[in-house]
Design a protein around this nucleic acid. Sequence first.
RNA 1: GGCGGCAUAGCCAAGCGGUAAGGCAGAGGACUGCAAAUCCUUCAUCCCCGGUUCAAAUCCGGGUGCCGCCUCCA
Length: 490
Amino acid sequence: MALTVFNTMGNRKEPFNPVVAGKVGMYVCGVTVYDLCHIGHARANVVFDTIVRYLRYRGYEVAFVRNFTDIDDKIIRRAASEGTDYLTISGRYIEAFYRDFDRMGLLRPDVEPRATGHIPEIIDLVARLVAAGNAYAVDGDVYYAVKGFHGYGKLSGKNTDDLLSGARVDVDERKRDPLDFALWKSSKPGEPAWDSPWGPGRPGWHIECSAMAMKHLGETLDIHGGGKDLVFPHHENEIAQSEGLTGKPFARYWVHNGFVNVDNEKMSKSLGNFFTLREVLAKVKPDVLRFFFASSHYRSPIDYSDRSLSEAKAGLDRLYRAKEKAEGCVAAGVMAASIPAGVDFSPLRDAPAKFVEAMDDDFNTAAALGHLFDAVRALNRLAPADPATERGKAAQFLAGYELLEPLFGTLGLLQAPAKEFFRGDEADPGGVTDGPGRLPAEEIDRRIEARKAARARKDFAEADRIRKELESLGVLLEDSRAGTTWKYKD
RNA sequence: GGCGGCAUAGCCAAGCGGUAAGGCAGAGGACUGCAAAUCCUUCAUCCCCGGUUCAAAUCCGGGUGCCGCCUCCA
């Protein structure tokens, strides 16, 4: 039983063997901070967050590095259009990134390097590439000479002849070869610039990742990740820059996540069919998005829609209901006992092993979730109607839930208290369940009391009237032996 | 034009050689004053055509249809 990872280099699953046993150096290409993140960014970040969580669950010591590209053409353009400087733009969107992704429960990386914080390292790398004959300077720009690197195209499966025959490479007479790409760009007057041996300028896009990854993780990474669209040219170029110099493999495993589609088409800025993370989080809880991502394999494309979101919500509800029951047990002062024997409960007892089996197969979160649902069904067989009076059953239920909790945690699910998930979070104003038109909790409690009185005098017509009225206001009542509880429906 | 991926029930989605996980929705039953939740039961032969094999959704060949990359892009 061993972890297997699909490697874009070679296009196949391989047993996972890091450079140093038990330790993983992982670099993920972060975002360019010139605008708000959309769901595509959300998926990429959630995917790698889940991978880090799982590797740690599996006992690996993970050094997780994710960068911010904080200087680039788009940032400069945006700054110009707003009449401000690039630092204002990058600062604003880094802050926005944290605001959005902290809500998603993303782990902070161990190191979060920024391109502008590594200019000396970048210049050093470029200078060494020039000295080694891998790159050349022209009028203050420095280009990488692709023809000199024989492995070019090995990651993306392209060969240089095909690339050249394609008409989509820009023509620039100053380049020796159309495929050559910029390592260093001279700056125009008024643009941000750093001094360099080639004059004032700024780093090209690809070089920053090589410089930062090697600085923080060494010359060979265990995992290098990013969206599928980064395979070419970004990662191909990173390989050329890094391996051209070190002669060592830049990364052992190249991991790329699939796209988020809308109406079966890639979501992207240029197509204009994107949704920002922020607007989606105004509609659903962060967990719902995480569940949505986890329910298909990270390399498959997924189609985003209101429908897929509400199906995710429905599925997640079931999981949170189990957590709700566990919280009820804890509130009743119950201590976890052990899970009963018998085949009825084997899906529960076997859940950790099944979970690992699924996740070991190239992080198959969809299969893992399937096993968790099996486990929850078995767990629900132990659910006490009233934990205060059925303490034995409650103790078993709690034991079962505690067995599953770390598994959910590895997927980043069920991180909020159930009450908060179903009723909203006072500590998170602006959160989903905080919208206008919500019936306040005090008002709901008042009506529940009225209904309780009606039921006590067997006036079921009145009791039902109250319940239906609440339902039409988006509030669901649930009676049990332990009393009546409520949830917002959305 | 080059390279790559995908096609599984009403919807979403695992499986990748041994006779179809799971979720949502639906149907029947139990429980409930009635509901909700929960539990039990039920609901597909895997795009088409060939081939390999004792055995294929899973492998090979040929179609058809989508999608992605080759330009900034998660």
